[in-house]
Design a protein around this nucleic acid. Structure first.
Length: 338
DNA sequence: AACAAATTCAACCGCATCATG
DNA sequence: GCATGATGCGGTTGAATTTGT
């Protein structure tokens, strides 16, 4: 027997009488079984369509007025932290559906940020992104090491723990959102190495969260505790479920961390990073001990021996170059406008 | 008033994940 | 472990509405 597909069902805008039918069904039976809902409600819609109509429009707790500035600010902050995970964002905004928020982002907020000179994807000023591209390009021109690929950077990245030393300058005005991890993420000081790191981390967080590692939100004290159920119950197994103090980016890396001795073997290979890079470009002295301080971040190496890895020297070269750039162009250190 | 362009937002689509047998 | 159906999610579409000329 052929089951009727969605193609055989009615499509298009919902009529008032259809709304009445589905509301009547839900008031009697709840929202448990969307497959049988349209049949039992006497509708020629597919269950998926009924569910969407309910969640995006008919739910009694939905607000239908326009977004407040506080809500917009929260959406922007959350988007900066987790990207377009609208369902999770909607859980922090009582009375708003994910579809509402997604539409508002796509039609209003993206445009607003763009007009402010902020890239809505990375949440960084366009000028800084351009400067960063230039910075990376300069290094790649100066050093044509075939071994130093993004993979090398990523390997080295795994060895480090990034901990902001200074508290964020700004806190979200909306008091419903006060995760230290998220604040660190959204209010970090801006500088170019971190753009690279942040882009990597953002990707990794995103990849990690795609397998339901939303531990980030398990940390969040939420004003509306009833809205936490989906987050805290499902997503608290992720690496971010650790305390903020032990927050470490390498927890989000997909590949298992390489053993340190293997790295040392790599270092003893025929390739010499010093030969490749010589002295750092501008020859600034840096503190290379564990727990070094770099542009406001504490960078904890996994092991002291890792400082000699070709990957970290590559990063050091990048850091030096970047430091010089920020000395020359201090405006790049400014916080995002919003 | 008429038309075009821009904007809004409800709804659809395809895919991923989960639950069950 | 596999197949199947249900559910959820995010990206996209397109009709309706608003704004500009």
């Amino acid at each position: 027997m052929v089951k009727p597909s969605c193609c055989d069902m009615k499509k298009g805008p919902w009529k008032g009488e259809e709304d009445v039918k589905i509301l009547g069904y839900i008031s009697k039976n709840g929202t448990g079984n969307w497959t049988s809902a349209p049949r039992k409600a006497g509708l020629k819609r597919c269950g998926k369509s009924c569910r969407l109509r309910w969640t995006n429009y008919l739910r009694p707790d939905l607000k239908h007025e326009s977004f407040t500035p506080e809500e917009e600010e929260l959406i922007i902050k959350l988007h900066a932290a987790i990207g377009s995970r609208w369902t999770i964002i909607a859980q922090q905004l009582p009375g708003r559906s994910d579809n509402d928020i997604k539409n508002h982002w796509n039609t209003k907020l993206k445009k607003k940020l763009t007009e402010m000179g902020i890239d809505p994807v990375t949440h960084k000023p366009f000028s800084q992104i351009l400067a960063d591209y230039g910075n990376i390009g300069a290094i790649s021109r100066a050093t044509t090491a075939p071994k130093h690929t993004a993979g090398t950077i990523r390997r080295d990245f795994k060895k480090r723990t990034f901990t902001p030393l200074t508290p964020p300058k700004t806190q979200p005005r909306s008091s419903t959102f006060s995760s230290p991890a998220l604040n660190n993420y959204t209010n970090y000081p801006s500088h170019s190495l971190d753009l690279l790191s942040q882009l990597q981390a953002m990707t990794l967080v995103t990849e990690g969260s795609s397998v339901r590692n939303y531990g980030l939100f398990s940390q969040m004290p939420l004003a509306n505790s009833s809205s936490t159920s989906a987050c805290s119950s499902s997503y608290n197994a992720g690496p971010m479920a650790k305390s903020p103090e032990s927050f470490s980016w390498h927890d989000f890396l997909l590949d298992p961390a390489p053993n340190q001795p293997q790295d040392e073997e790599d270092n003893s290979s025929s390739f010499s990073s010093k030969q490749q890079f010589g002295t750092p470009p501008m020859g600034k002295k840096r503190n290379n001990n564990d727990g070094e301080i770099t542009n406001g971040y504490e960078v904890q190496h996994g092991s002291s021996s890792s400082t000699s890895s070709d990957g970290s020297l590559f990063l050091e070269a990048m850091l030096d170059q970047e430091n010089d750039m920020f000395l020359n162009f201090p405006g790049l250190m400014e916080e995002p406008l919003y």
